[in-house]
């Protein structure tokens, strides 16, 4: 049991390099968000903004919140929350895009 715990803890050790890289990626994506906001992409404006936001959240959740290295059940919980979000977006889309 104790060994299991140690192994579990060991798997949580992430090098500074990964954190710094993720941070740089987040900064770049933030700059990209601002840059894209100035372009007229028509119907794709919302889609692009959401895509960048999704990548940013994925980085935070996977790396900084350690979900990538944790038990599968947490991934299931997260997937349920994401699925709910997607369904909410789709159902609201039926109003916004068909009004």
């Amino acid at each position: 049991m104790a060994t299991d715990k140690n192994e579990h803890e060991k798997s949580h050790l992430i090098g500074y390099g990964t954190y710094v890289l993720s941070w740089l990626a987040l900064l770049s994506l933030a700059i990209l968000t601002v840059a894209v906001a100035g372009l007229d992409l028509g119907n794709f404006t919302l889609f692009t903004a959401l895509l960048i936001a999704a990548i940013k959240s994925a980085l935070v959740i996977m790396i900084f919140m350690h979900i990538k290295y944790d038990e599968p059940i947490f991934k299931v919980f997260l997937a349920i929350a994401l699925l709910v979000l997607v369904i909410v977006f789709v159902l609201m889309g039926f109003d916004v895009f068909y009004r």
Binding site: V84, I87, L91, F94, D95, V96, Y98, R99
Partner: peptide, 22 residues
């Protein structure tokens, strides 16, 4: 039950497509 909220909004100006889906 999570997917039916729009039935509170049938008369509030929501799209027709949404109304029948909800």
């Amino acid at each position: 039950g999570y997917l039916v909220w729009g039935h509170h909004m049938f008369t509030s100006g929501m799209s027709d497509t949404s109304r029948w889906i909800f």
